[in-house]
Design a protein around this nucleic acid. Structure first.
Lengths: 233, 233
DNA sequence: ACCTGAACACCGTTCAAGT
DNA sequence: ACCTGAACACCGTTCAAGT
């Protein structure tokens, strides 16, 4: 609702940090993550690349801002980071937090790769971790065990698993039966696994093998392990 | 031992793929990983950047080659990937393989970040995974469980843990007691953890919190969890 | 106060040309 | 067969200049 007192050429809403960051998320959502360049982002906003620097320190600041936008989505989905947790049931509380974060990641499949480039945590992120840590503490974890827990979970606390080799999805190298037979001589175990296990839930996927069942398996494995560690402490 | 029949100006050993890759590892070892640029690599070899392309397809090929060099080191440290494993004791066999890989990573702290950029596995890597998988299978894992195991372990099978936020070590933001008091009001749990847990084994470290004890904790947590899963299968 | 043009210092990479 | 010079298409970023 811009009042247009001037004789009506386009209103031209002035840029702002908020608009820049919102556009950045949009650019990333629409293209791949490498399409998020300063020049590209400027174009999306109908402006020259250099204008961005008036509102944002540099590209790193853009990426940090994008992360905060994602965290805001998670916070909203959770109804705040500091929801009162059922003290004893840290496990389902954690599980819920993490799987909610994962829903947000599934909406922005490029987000994990941005998280991976960040070196320091923004205030919102710190709050997120404070919430997780609080849940653990109230669930009976020592600080030491809680610390181990965070590291053992790694990126899973944010709802994604960092994968090592995720072949691009141009899928040039479809494996056919003839190849399998050939490989089977030298790689019996791998071929055995490939023929026996299959992934077929395309909707819950964040890259290669990170689908819902895979993610949950590892998550529960770790949570169960932690549970045993408190019990025997 | 270059025979120098020509009147003696520098022998000038001709370039080769091997020399290029060896130089690449050297450049990475000496500087940070971002010092590994084509121009920089060329300079190390006393040659123009464009000459590299005669021996190597592109930068991706250089990085793939560097990975293979690391894998060769691991293979050597292990005495081959296919060492006969004590069938039953998959756990110590796996543990040994992984901690040996980790020793190599500690010699090349930049290596994890290169692994993280790779999208497809080279033949040597495939062999490494075949070996791991074989160990699991011989230890009684179903293919399905073995598959889950690989994903749950993630980068840990190669001896490093992918960390999410590793603050640069210029350490500009030393935390002093005054700040801690101030933070304590809003972040009681985090401050509690920071003051209680400390890392002090600088030699076993691969970035921020990935030190030997942290790594082993998570590794054993997962291995123990897997052990339970076979038993109850 | 907000935006821009021209320019810089870096990338990886090509291609025709040199020995 | 092996190496190079000049050039291209991209980055992020600066700075003085425009309105």
């Amino acid at each position: 609702m811009v009042t247009e007192t001037e004789s009506g050429v386009e209103p031209r809403i002035p840029l702002s940090k908020e608009r820049v960051l919102a556009a950045a998320v949009k650019v990333a959502d629409e293209g791949a993550i490498d399409s998020l360049t300063m020049r590209n982002l400027a174009e999306e906003l109908g402006v020259e690349a250099m204008s961005l620097y008036y509102h944002v320190a540099n590209k790193d600041a853009v990426l940090d801002g994008v992360i905060d936008a994602i965290m805001a989505e998670i916070e909203e989905a959770l109804g705040g980071f500091r929801v009162p947790e059922a003290g004893a049931d840290w496990k389902t509380a954690l599980r819920h937090r993490i799987l909610t974060a994962r829903q947000v990641m599934l909406r922005h499949p490029w987000a994990p790769s941005v998280f991976e480039t960040r070196t320091t945590m923004s205030p919102v992120l710190v709050l997120y971790f404070e919430g997780l840590l609080g849940t653990l503490r109230e669930g009976g974890f020592s600080y030491d065990l809680a610390h181990h827990a965070m590291h053992a979970l790694g990126s899973r606390v944010l709802g994604f698993s960092q994968e090592l080799f995720r072949p691009e999805d141009d899928a040039g190298d479809e494996v056919n039966d003839a190849m399998l037979k050939e490989m089977a001589e030298h790689l019996p175990y791998l071929v055995g696994m490939l023929t026996e296990t299959a992934h077929d839930d395309p909707d819950s996927t964040l890259g290669w093998c990170d689908d819902e069942t895979e993610f949950s398996f590892a998550l529960d494995l770790i949570l169960d392990g932690l549970e045993r560690r408190i019990e025997t402490a």
